[in-house]
Computed example of a mutant assay.
Amino acid sequence: MLDATSQAANWMGLCFNANKCAYLHNNGSRRDSVQATSFHIQGEPMISLEEGEAYQQLGKPTGFCIWQTLEDTIKEILQDATKIETSLLVPWRKINALNTFLIPRISFVLRGSAVAKVPFNKVNSIIRQLVKRWLFLPQRASNELTYIGHRQGGANVPRMGDLCDFAVITQAFCLLTCADATMKNIAANALGEVIKKRISRIRSRQDIATCFSSSLDGEFEWDGGDIASLWTHACNITRHLRKHIGCRWTWCEERQELSVLVPRIRATDHTIITPRAQGILEKSLKAAINALYVENLKKKPDQGKAFEFTSKWDARNHFLPWGSFTRFADWRFIHQAQLNCLPLNRAICHGNRDKGCRKCGYNN
Rank of each mutant, 00 (worst) to 15 (best):
R266K: 07
E85W: 00
L261W: 05
S33K: 01
G154D: 05
N19Q: 13
S107A: 08
H270K: 02
Q303W: 01
Q68S: 07
I237C: 04
S29I: 01
G224M: 09
G279Y: 05
L258T: 08
V157L: 03
L130S: 13
W313V: 12
A8F: 15
F108K: 05
E44V: 13
Q171W: 12
A81N: 00
C349N: 14
Q57N: 14
S204Y: 07
Q35A: 14
D226W: 11
N156F: 07
R31T: 13
R111K: 06
F16M: 09
I348Q: 10
I126Y: 06
T238K: 01
K132P: 14
A9H: 03
K196S: 05
L261K: 06
E219Q: 09
N364C: 14
R105G: 06
I126Q: 11
T62D: 09
F325C: 05
N317M: 02
T86P: 09
T73N: 12
K286R: 12
C235P: 03
G161I: 04
S142P: 13
Q336T: 06
A36R: 15
C21H: 08
P119T: 08
W67S: 10
K122G: 09
F120W: 12
S29R: 04
T73W: 06
D223P: 06
N121K: 07
K283N: 14
I208W: 00
E253V: 10
N290K: 01
T326K: 02
T100Y: 01
F101G: 08
L78S: 04
V109W: 01
S48M: 10
K132W: 10
P321I: 05
F212V: 06
R353T: 14
G279Q: 05
T310H: 10
S311H: 09
N317V: 10
R198H: 02
I95M: 11
D314I: 12
Q336P: 08
A54K: 02
V115K: 00
F309W: 08
C247L: 13
A116S: 14
A329G: 08
L102P: 08
Q68F: 04
C252S: 13
Q7D: 15
A347L: 09
E295Y: 10
N156M: 03
G279H: 09
I199K: 00
N290P: 01
G112F: 15
V34M: 06
N352Y: 13
R358I: 15
F120P: 09
I77L: 08
A4F: 10
N340Y: 03
E282N: 10
H335R: 05
E51Q: 04
G224A: 07
N185I: 03
K305R: 11
I280T: 14
G361F: 11
N19S: 05
N185E: 08
E71Y: 13
C360T: 08
A267Q: 14
L261P: 04
C174F: 03
L98E: 03
E144F: 04
D207Y: 07
P275S: 08
E308G: 13
L145I: 14
C178F: 00
I348V: 15
D80E: 14
T170F: 01
R327W: 01
I272E: 10
L14R: 00
I103K: 06
E193D: 07
H240G: 10
M12P: 06
N10M: 08
F101N: 11
R128E: 11
D354T: 04
E144T: 01
N352D: 05
F220Y: 12
